[in-house]
Each structure stands twice: as C-alpha cells, then as structure tokens.
C-alpha cells in the first residue's frame, strides 16, 4: 500500500496548561483538496502550524509521504530532529499566511527566488526563470520588480502564494489567506487557489469562505474544540450535517 500524502495520528498540542489539539486523526492523499472549517479558537491554525513544525507538539505523529515529521523516537525517548533536517522537512510543504509575510525589503521576484537559491540551490538565472513562471501564473509577471509596499493586499498574497509554490511543495497549506483582504480583493486570490486545485495541487486550507470550501474541496474537515468533530464531502455534510455542532456552525456562517 502506498503511503498517504499526509497522515496525522492522535495529535496533541498544548500552550502551557491549555490543550488546544486534543487528539487529531486525519489522512489525505495526493491531489486532495481539503478545507478545514470551524469556529475561532478551535485549533485550525495550530493544526496547520504543527504540520510544518512552526509549532512543537507533545503527542502523536505526523507523516508526510510516510516520513515522520519533526521528532524521532528511540528507546521510548522522543527527540526533536536536528534543525537542518526539520528545515528540509518544512520544504515538503508550502505555506501561505493570513498576513502574507512577504519580505518587505525584497522585490516580488526576489521574494520568490530567495528559497530557490538558498534552499533549492538553483543558479540565479534558473531561479529567476522559475520565479517568473510562477509570478506569471498568479497574474503578476508585470509586477515582478515591485516591492511589497507597492502592491495591493491581493497582489501581495498572490506573490506569497507564488513564493510558496515555486518551491515545489508536495502539500500546500493555506491559513485564511483572504481574511486580511478587503472584500473586493478576495476573489483574485481565491481564483489563484481554485486554479491550483484544478491543476491537481494537494492542499489543506483553513477558510471562513464556506461557499468556496463547498466548491473546491473534496473533503471538508470541521474542527471543534481541538478535535475533528466531523468530516466528509461538502456536498454531503453541508446539507446534512450529522453533528449538532456543525449544523449550528453552518447556520451562523455566511455563505456569501
């Protein structure tokens, strides 16, 4: 049996005394588009951040293509992997953040080439060619020389997505990438994600855009209070939620 793209087993994560993830189990395969929904504070961001080790976690395992992420267990002792190894594993995934987090002192194209040059060790010219391809793809080829401060929020987010995808990750993580945007800029970003999904990119996206989740996802995961309360095909669970919590959540979420 081939390995799953992502396999999470009994994931536990606390911030101090507060347990935020209380045993999350989840698998997805190559090409899957999975949306994570749930009310504020339910642990969606934390889940994504554990997958690329931006957060440490105390219990459970995360595997990407069969490879255990972040920790080794030997003789009953769980140890954090060396930083170099973690850096390599982080590059298996790409992440787009709510706040874009573009490097403000670098032009759009330099934001994209930085990882290609420093991590992938591509020669400068090749890195620029790859970066241009992705900037074109997100519709910003003509803005390659612009600095983040010269771009709109929607444009910045598209550069940030290009920066992540250019690294050729096996799984893309999107954390509410449209939440910080003015309403009129949301669509251009969703359009980019939609087209990546259509191209078969595997992605795990946290979103409050229910209509979008319904439209693009193969699977929707509903998180509640640190666990996955319900998951399934949105065309099945949105009209007929089997838990009361999801029914309530869907009722209070806007579909516009």
């Amino acid at each position: 049996m081939p390995d799953h793209l992502l396999e999470i087993e009994d994931l536990h994560k606390s911030f101090g005394e507060t347990e935020v993830l209380k045993g999350v189990d989840f698998t997805m395969d190559k090409g899957d588009v999975v949306s994570v929904i749930g009310s504020s504070g339910s642990g969606k961001t934390t889940l994504l951040r554990c997958i690329n080790m931006l957060e440490e976690f105390e219990g459970g395992t995360i595997r990407i293509e069969g490879e255990v992420i972040g920790y080794t267990t030997a003789g009953g002792h769980r140890r954090r992997k060396p930083e170099k190894e973690i850096a390599r594993q982080r590059a298996l995934t790409g992440m787009a953040f709510q706040q874009f987090n573009l490097f403000p002192h670098m032009s759009a194209i330099d934001n994209v080439t930085l990882g290609l040059i420093k991590v992938k060790k591509l020669p400068k010219e090749e890195a620029r060619a790859v970066a241009m391809r992705w900037l074109d793809r997100v519709g910003l080829g003509e803005r390659a020389g612009h600095y983040p401060g010269q771009l709109s929020g929607g444009q910045q987010q598209r550069v940030a997505i290009a920066r992540a995808i250019a690294m050729n990750p096996h799984l893309m993580l999107f954390d509410e990438v449209t939440s910080a945007l003015d309403p009129e800029l949301v669509n251009e970003v969703l359009q980019v994600i939609r087209s990546l999904a259509e191209d078969g990119m595997s992605m795990l996206l946290v979103t409050h855009e229910m209509r979008f989740a319904h439209e693009v996802s193969d699977i929707v995961v509903f998180m509640n209070d640190g666990v996955i309360a319900e998951m399934g095909n949105p065309r099945e669970i949105f009209p007929n939620p089997s838990t009361r919590r999801l029914a309530e959540f869907l009722k209070t979420s806007s579909f516009n």
């Binding site: 390599r88 953040f97 706040q99 490097f103 403000p104």
Partner: peptide
C-alpha cells in the same frame, strides 16, 4: 520586525 517574517522564512525551508 514582525515575527511572521521569520516563520515565512522557516516555511520555505530556510535555516535560522
């Protein structure tokens, strides 16, 4: 410096 920039760097596989 916003901490998100460091995290964005980590996310693309850069070392500290």
């Amino acid at each position: 410096i916003p901490p998100g920039l460091r995290e964005a760097g980590l996310a693309i596989g850069l070392t500290e």
